[in-house]
Structure formats: structure tokens, C-alpha cells
Design a protein around this nucleic acid. Structure first.
Lengths: 95, 95, 95, 95
DNA sequence: GCCGGAGCTATTTGCC
DNA sequence: GGCAAATAGCTCCGGC
């Protein structure tokens, strides 16, 4: 059976009765730091939703705004290619 | 069943020829706020990776840590129980 | 307390011991017909995935194909407007 | 993080000037197969609506029927149990 | 006729 | 890099 944790056997020894406590605290640190960051991400995601909701309230199309943001993410070359490919397909279909 | 754009959303009457400029600034506000938030999310994701990398460097299994976090996520209303589960897991792992 | 089923009390009377059987058969008919149709939908969805997988295997971009299909769904007017709105936004942003 | 198109997917060498026509037919095949399947799905969805409408006309609660179907979906591996649950519900409802 | 909730589709993220 | 699970957005249905 393989071990679920990485090597460094000394840190996992049963010889030291305090090691569990120490490791528990340590693992808890990592877990809670990660969870805290996760919560921050959620807050930001919510803020993004607010941005879109506000834009919608101002009369803008949320879906188009999303498209604009996606386009801005593309490098100019990528964007040119994206448009070229779409046009190639639509042209091939007579659209 | 899906539409690329919402029905009525131009928000552009032909009456005011300067509206494009004004809207340009407004659109830019929304777009840039959204992009800024996206960048923050990326920073946080990177920070999470650092947390995991550090934990790994301390000898912990990243996959086990992820499992622990996932378990805690399942019962957010009962943190005491979540902590008991965490302890059970760490104990079972000889930690 | 509100009743979960619609009126027509006579169909739910306890006076007739056979009504449960009759209604059980009837409800089962509806449920199973619905489930059968659901299974057919799933088969079709799977077939659609196969179509896309095959197209991908032939070297086409699945995402662009999806865009093409979405465009074909739009009425010519809707499509023109969608493109106009996107262009308006990108122009306003100097893109 | 998202791209509008996949990286290398043009599938169009410049060596063969007729490839667009050929690909047009090929693209059309994929697109139309997909659209045809979509239409079939719509027919089935309509049939499902008819089932529910008919059940409603027979005095049943659409929402309860949906619940029953959802329950059966949860344990597809144990149809006997699902049927027991169905009977329990129908009995509890005085049906 | 509108609002809220649920189901489904599509995109994204993590794993192999 | 591909695949699969998780998440978010969208659409539709039912209820008020």
C-alpha cells in the first residue's frame, strides 16, 4: 500500500507523542490559509457579478460585454486568427 | 435555444451622435473593473498554489490536503465536526 | 396545509380501495413515459457529442463550430444586430 | 484564461486551393447533423410537456410528478427501492 | 404578467 | 495536452 504523504519519515514518527499536535497545527495552517484565499476568490467573483449587474442596469448587453472581455484577452494575433477561422467556416457554409 | 445577444440592448439612440464616446468611457469602466477583478483572482490562485507548494515542501501530500479541504467544504455548517474529521484523517494517516 | 395534488377529490377518496392501484398505475404511466423520453434525449445528446468529437478528429475547432451553429440559429436581423452591437462596443473601446 | 478558439485548428493548408469547398461540404455535414439532432431533442421536450399537461389534466400535481422522477433518477441502480419510494410517496399522498 | 426556483448547457479548473 | 469533474450562466417552468 502506498503512503498518502510524501517522504520525510521522521516527521511522521510515532516516537514523539507531540508530533501529532505539531503536525495538526501545521496542516491546519495550510488548510486554513487555502480556505481563506478561496473565500477571497468568492468575494471577487461576487464583485464581478455586481459589475455585470450594474452594467446591465445601465442598459448594456452582458453577453456582449463578456465577448469584449474575451476578445481583449486574446493577443492581436490570436484574435486575428479567431476571426479568420470563424469567417472561413461561415464562408465555407455560404453564410 | 441560446441567443448570442439579448433582444433590446443597444442603448444607442440615433438622436445623440456623441453617445458613443460617452458610452465608450462607461463601457471601459465596466470592462476594466471586471478585468481588474479577474487579475486579483489570478493573484489569489497563484497564492493558493504557493500554499500547496509550501505544504509539499514541508512533506505533506497535496492531494490529501485537497481532500481535507473538500471535506471541510461539505459540512461548512458544522465546523466542529469538520475539525473532528480532519483530526480523524490526520490520525489515520499517522500524522 | 396545502394539498400537493390538484383538486378532483373524488379521484383521491379512501372510499374505494382500488383507487390506489388505479392511480398508481396511472401515475406510473406518466412517470415512465416521461423517463422514456428523457432517455431518448440523452441518447441524442450523446450523438451530438459524437458529432463534435468526429469533427474534432477531422481537425475542426469545436468552439468555432458551436459559434457557427449559434449564428445559424439567429434570424438575419438578430445576427446583424448582434454583430453591430459587438462592433459598437469594440469601437467605443478603440478595439 | 479562456480562448475563443483553440490554437491550431485551421486545417487549411495553402497548398490546395479547393480545400475550402471540400471543407465547406464537410463542415456542413457536421453542422447539419448537429442541428438535426437538436431538432429531435426539441420534439422530445415538447412530448414531455404533453405528458405533464396530460397528467395535470388528469388531476395530478406536476411538481409532485417531477419530484417522483427526480427521486427515481437518484437511485437508478436500485429500481426496486425507487419503486418502493414511489409507492411510499403515492401512499403518503393518499393516492 | 412577473418573480423565483430548478434543470440544463457550457465554460472553466484540476488531474492524469 | 486531453479528460473529467465542478462551477457559473442561461433558459425555461411553475406559482402568485
Amino acid at each position: 500500500m502506498s503512503r498518502l504523504v510524501n517522504g520525510d519519515e521522521t516527521r511522521q514518527s510515532d516516537e514523539n507523542p507531540t508530533s501529532t499536535t505539531v503536525n495538526g497545527a501545521e496542516i491546519r495552517q495550510f488548510v486554513e490559509r487555502h480556505e481563506r484565499l478561496e473565500a477571497e476568490k468568492k468575494d471577487i467573483t461576487d464583485a464581478q457579478k455586481e459589475v455585470m449587474a450594474e452594467a446591465k442596469g445601465r442598459g448594456y448587453s452582458v453577453s456582449v460585454l463578456r465577448s469584449v472581455i474575451a476578445l481583449r484577452k486574446l493577443s492581436p494575433d490570436d484574435r486575428a486568427e479567431a476571426e479568420a477561422v470563424l469567417e472561413m467556416y461561415t464562408t465555407a457554409l455560404g453564410m
